[in-house]
């Protein structure tokens, strides 16, 4: 899975990936983002996940999202999801993630 991580401003990250977020890919996806957040010299306050090309998210993928959310919350940052398709939105709603995640 290709993951592109771009910096926005001093303490923002923009992440773009395509394909499935599942048992096969989610861990890799999550680790890359986490490492970037932790290695950054500045404290990351905003992470934008571009979901425009994500076709599927499994429970594994959802777990990774929750972990990222918690990590950012611990350093008073915000996790934003962009371009989430209606189908994926259903998955988020099913587990109640729509109540705290920020969708753009």
């Amino acid at each position: 899975m290709d993951v592109t991580i771009k910096k926005i401003g001093i303490n923002g990250l923009y992440i773009h990936a395509s394909g499935r977020l599942d048992l096969d890919t989610a861990v890799d996806y999550g680790t890359k983002i986490k490492d970037t957040i932790e290695d950054s010299e500045e404290i990351i306050k905003e992470v934008i996940l571009d979901f425009s090309e994500i076709t599927f998210i499994s429970s594994f993928g959802l777990k990774i999202i929750l972990e990222l959310f918690k990590l950012l919350k611990s350093q008073e940052g915000v996790l934003k999801l962009k371009n989430v398709s209606e189908q994926l939105m259903g998955s988020f709603k099913l587990v109640g993630f729509d109540k705290f995640l920020v969708f753009e």
Partner: peptide
């Protein structure tokens, strides 16, 4: 409990819940 605030949610256990509902 999916009504819990995200900080208190355990990472695991969601999967089976999803399966049961789907």
């Amino acid at each position: 409990d999916i009504s819990l605030p995200p900080e208190e949610r355990p990472i695991g256990g969601l999967g089976i819940y999803m399966v049961k509902n789907l």
